Amino acid sequence: MQTFEPGESWMWDYRTDDYTEGPELAPAVHHPLDQPTPGPEGHVPPNWEQLLN
């Protein structure tokens, strides 16, 4: 697995349960830099964390 976040390049190896080096992958597609997380502003309920299953 590789991070999607801009400016990060770490990879995770589930077999070893640790960070790892890996091949250079195609550029990641991420949310627009001006878009807040966890989602579009005004469209995420204030209690979104409590709604996670």
Rank of each mutant, 00 (worst) to 15 (best):
T20V: 06
V29Y: 02
G22H: 01
P6G: 02
E24M: 13
D34A: 06
P40Y: 08
H31Y: 13
G39V: 07
H31M: 14
P45V: 07
E24H: 06
W10K: 04
P46L: 08
T20W: 00
Q50E: 15
D17C: 11
N47Q: 02
E24K: 12
T20H: 00
Y14L: 10
N53C: 13
T3R: 04
E8I: 11
E49G: 04
P27Y: 00
E8F: 15
D34H: 05
P45W: 01
T20D: 01
E24C: 07
E21K: 10
D13K: 02
D13Q: 02
S9V: 09
E21M: 10
L33T: 13
E41V: 08
E8T: 14
L25H: 07
P40L: 14
N53E: 15
Y14T: 13
N53V: 15
G7L: 04
E24N: 07
D18N: 12
P46C: 04
V29N: 03
Q35C: 07
Y19L: 12
H43Y: 14
P27V: 06
G42D: 01
G42V: 05
H43D: 12
T3I: 14
Q2S: 11
Q50M: 11
L52P: 02
Q35F: 03
E21C: 07
G39E: 01
P23K: 05
P46I: 10
R15W: 07
L52T: 08
L33P: 07
P6W: 05
L52E: 12
T20C: 09
W48T: 04
E49R: 15
M1P: 08
E49H: 06
D17S: 09
D18E: 09
T37Y: 07
Y14D: 12
L51E: 12
Q35T: 11
M1F: 10
H30E: 06
T37F: 11
E41K: 14
L33S: 14
M11W: 05
L52F: 09
